[in-house]
Amino acid sequence: MTLLITVFAAAICTAVWYKTDSREEMKLGTLCLIYWGASLMWLVDAVYGSLELKAEYFTPSPADMLNDTFLGLSAAALGLVIWLAVLLIKDPKNVVKNALFKRKN
């Protein structure tokens, strides 16, 4: 579930980046790479998990699925927070800079 949620987040981000952020003004490329990196890592984890647990891996209990869903959503939210921090620190559109140092004229 965690892997699925992250892959969906990565795919949606990539589509939005392709459509809107050609000049990297919103740093959406960074968010895409964060989600794709996590998706690939969780994919490897899932492959090893399925090799170890076999069929049991694909039939999780409802409680485990719910826990994994919350984890996936929380991870996606954390990815968004990291992206926002990067966006505000790098400030490609100078929004933060202009807000902090308002010109007097």
Partner: peptide, 20 residues
């Protein structure tokens, strides 16, 4: 930097999973 972003981003989210 693409590789950096994938490695750091993925590691960051997986650290969160390990804490969870």
């Amino acid at each position: 930097k693409w590789l950096n972003n994938m490695l750091w981003g993925g590691s960051g989210l997986l650290v969160f999973e390990h804490i969870w």
